[in-house]
Every structure is written in C-alpha cells, then in structure tokens.
Design a binder for these strands. Sequence first.
RNA 1: UGCCGAAUGGUGUAACGGUAGCACAGCGGUCUCUGACACCGUAUGUCUAGGUUCGAAUCCUAGUUCGGCAACCA
Length: 566
Amino acid sequence: MEEGNNDAKSESLDFIREIIANDLSSGKHEAPVTRFPPEPNGYIHIGHAKSICLNFGLSKENKGGACHLRFDDTNPVKEDSEYVDSIKQDVSWLGFEWGDNLFFASDYFDKLYDFAQKLIKEGKAYVCDLSLDEIAEHRGSPKTPGKKSPYRDRSPEENIDLFKRMRDGEFDDGTKVLRAKIDMTSPNLHMRDPVLYRIRKIAHHRTGDKWCIYPMYDFTHCLSDSIEGITHSLCTLEFEVHRPLYDWVLAKLSVECHPRQIEFARLNLTYTVLSKRKLLVLVEEAYVSGWDDPRMPTVSGLRRRGFTPASIKAFCHAIGVTKFNGLTDVALLEHSLRQDLNETVERRLAVLNPIKVVITNFQEERVEDLEAVNNPKNPEAGTRIMPFTREIYIEKDDFMEDPPNKFFRLGPGREVRLRFAYFITCQEVIKNDAGEIVELHCTYDPETRGGNAPDGRKVKGTIHWVSAAKAFETKVRLYDRLFTTEDPNKEEDGKTFLDYINESSLEIIADAKLEPSLSEATPGESFQFERLGYFCADLKDSENGTPVFNRTTTLRDTWSKQKNKS
RNA sequence: UGCCGAAUGGUGUAACGGUAGCACAGCGGUCUCUGACACCGUAUGUCUAGGUUCGAAUCCUAGUUCGGCAACCA
C-alpha cells in the first residue's frame, strides 16, 4: 500500500475503501471480512449487484479478505428457499465465490436466543404485552417523545420465564414481544425500546417448526456479523438511523467482535424501478412475463436480456460508491454493455423488417458462398460462409424511393454495397395496386465480389442482407425500456409508476430473416446483428434447435437522430 | 417544530488548503465494407452568504435545498 501511494495512475479510493485501507495500515484489521446479506424473499437486481460488487470486490482486492454470503432469513412469513437458490445462482453468475462462507441467520437462532436471555438477565430487555397498535402509539412520533410501556419494569426472572413460554408456544401471535429497554424519549425512533423478538407460529424454510419466535433484523444482523467475524458491515443509507441500535446491542452484550457498519447510497436508475414491492407488482399484475423477463432489472432478467457479468461489473465500478443519493442514467449501463459486447461477440446479418430484392442478372438456381468476417475486433474469431442467391431480403429502412441527400442507402438508380457481397444498383421499384412497394429489382456487378470494385469506385452505403431462399426464420423480440419517464418513482399528480409503463417495451417480430448460421445458436449465445444491435438466443424459449432472439440493446444510431431532427 | 445524512457541468464521480479532472449523455468533425467501433474537437459545474488564509470545492459560521427515519419488514 505504501508504495502505491504516489502512483499517479492509481485510482482514488472511494470513502469505504479509504476507511478499510486505514484500518489495514493502522493494524486494526489484517484483512477485511465483508458480507452480502440478502433476505430470501425476492430476486436480486442491479442494485444488489452494486452491493455484491462492493462486498465481494473488497474481498478479492485484499489479500486474505473474505466475503460471506449470508441469508437474512428471520421472517418466515415472506421467505422461501426458492429465492435462496436464485440468489446463489445470480451471485455466482456475476462471477463471485463465497467458498465455505455460506451462512444463514437462521443458523444462529440458538445463539441469538441465548443472547436475548443475557440481555433480559441484565435488565436490558423485557417482554411486553402491548398490542401492535399500542406499541406504535407508545412510540410517539419524531416530534413527540414516546411513553414507557406498563410492562417495562417486569423483573428479569419474570421476563426470562415469559420469554421461555413465548418460545414454547404458550402465547398467540402478536400477543407478546421481547423489547430492548433503551430510551422511550430518544430522538432516534429506533432507540425507543425496539422490538427484538416476535411470535410467528409458522414454519421456517430451514428450521421448520423448531421455532415460533423469530428475532428481528436489528437484533439479528449485528450479532450475525459479530458471530462471523465481519470487520466492515456495509449497508445502504436507510440503515444509517439503525446504527446506534446496531452498536447498542453489540456493546450491551460485550461481544468480542464489533464490526463497523458503514452506509452507502443505493443505486437508482433512470427509466427503472428497483423496489422489491414495485417489481413484485410488475410480475404479479403481468406487466412482464416474470422475474426474469428481459425487461426486468433483476439479475436474472438482465441475464436473459443478454447482459454479461463483465458489463455489470464494469458499470458498478463506473458508478462508484458514495453517500449521495442520486439517479444514474441507464445509458451508462448500456454503454458498459456495448463496450463489452463489441469486443467479444461475433457478428451476423439479420433482416428484421424485410423487403425483397431480386438481383435480375444473377442466375436463378445459383447459390454462391461468400466469406464474412465474424468479428473485426478479433481476427481469431475467423470467418463464416453466407449463401448469396438471386432473391435476397434487405431492411425496409435501407430503401427510400425519394431519398434526401444525406441518405446513403439504396434508392432508385443508386448503387450500394451488400455487406461481404456485391455492389448492387436499384433498377426498378415494383408496387402493388395499393401503391405499396413490394419488391425491388436490382442488378449486381460481378466484378465487385467480396465488396470491392476493381475500378476503385466507391459507394457511400453498405447495407446488410439475407438470402431469401436460405434464410432462417425465427421469432425476434425487440425490447425497449419499461418506462416512459426518467423517474417512474416520482409519483406526482396522483400518478403511480404504473402510469408510466411503456406500452411498446416489447415488439415481437414473428418471422425475422436471419442468416442460416444463426439456426445453430445455443441458448444464451450473443451476437451483434450488424447495423441493428446486440441480440442473444433466449435462455428459456429457444427449443429444439430453434433459437428465439432477444434484442439486448441497439447499436448507437446517429442516423436516426439526424433523421429525427429534420 | 425532532433525529440522521448529503450537496461539484445534463448524469454519475475525482480533486484530502495550491492549475476543478474523468466517464456517460449532448453537439461538431475525421475515418469506415456496420451511419457501429475508433479518433479529434467543443459547450456546460464547486447550493447561498459571510469568515479564516498569500491561496478555499476542501477549514469555520449561518442559511438554503434534497434524501432517509415513526413495520411485531429487511
């Protein structure tokens, strides 16, 4: 560390990494031990990915560091092992390993019970018979102090007995809780005798029927951290007001390991909602097809959409870690994606909105094999063969009957290059009775095979194409952002995020014309369809050798911008 | 009228008392067998007011604005 200091290129540390670096150099810790503590009650999303990259990143960056994956499963009402499986899958898909450090807060229930007893014996906790509403009322408000519970002064002996009977199932749900005895007049609401345990006669996904009392977050989390020897407990800003309680519990219990809780800002993304509640509404009310719908910001959704772990990690690195609660432009995420895909993914040609072109001077039955470059960014990716025939498809947008002068593509009498193939010139526009263009008749120049003219003449435009006879037809789904407004969370004028749903976030093309090699794409495989965007074979809906493609994102398109301006 | 926290171009961030920089987005251009990529250029910023200092984004004071906090959720 000492030697890295004056390296001008060394990146500046965010405030958390700075704290950790200081703790390391001061000798307070030898290596950071962090944790990612999801509650298994939903699927994780890009916001969690930020936390995952931070916590696991820290363990990778520091020799001897570790990051635990710990499920915070203290509320059996909401939690399910379905979610623990998906979360594990998502974390490891992102490229992080927890090794032996897989934990569950529920594994600590016995220890937690002992800690609670200790607190009771020392007069720091009591069993309270107030109802939920009464507790709320006694708590007061931010501006008014709370009132003491009438049960606050029960003796430790009575409390121990009551707590044991709570555990043994003698009381009904909601009739008793265990509370910390702190200060009902504290300006921090969380310190006004917070609830530590509640009765829930419901089976837990891991402990089954063993328990009918379950510890609350504030009691569980700090002690779980302590038990595991966490050095730095990183969480989001909303837990800032919980920190005094985190520290209170650990201090009163005199535990050896007292981790430092540090809060950072959660991620907000434009055109996106990231609250579990809202995501759940989207799923349950079928605005999307599921948690892994390619439009969802969940890790599983991003995966199906065609995002790569590298692009997500690059994004998380780019946004940094601060205490400022901002709104990050989703364009930054898309940029990280394109950056990665551009380097790594093979190119293919595909026509989404076809118009037929007949090459009138090309023999009828002839099939010519042409060589196409797989990835100009990576020569090792090699080449592939594309069949060229008399009838081909080109993109509708690549022809204009009456083109403006900035239009570089095909038009009556114009010559363009077919990528990797020939120069063609449009000779005739065929229309139906309604006056719609149905077909283009063109001639090709045999001398331009491969795409270059021996006489050195240039064409301004190069367009993509697919052989009509040999095309692989399949479904292609074009995804767009799910919301029409930058901040769908801003619920003004009585509107909710549902009022900003983008009705055209999914466009399905039933029979796009793809070059034949695409029929062999394996689920999850990504390509750049040249001049269109990045697409991947869907993980779920591609079956028996018929891949279905999702558009991951478009290419940057300065032409359409220019066009829209005029 | 409570407590906690945060304010740097349009957005996200850096600068740790000494030239306000980077990325994204925007705009303009070069290149091009992808109107992609790449490359070049460009506009826009320290919340306000005082103070300390030779010098303040940075330190102090006061204000302003924004976010979070009153689940037997996490």
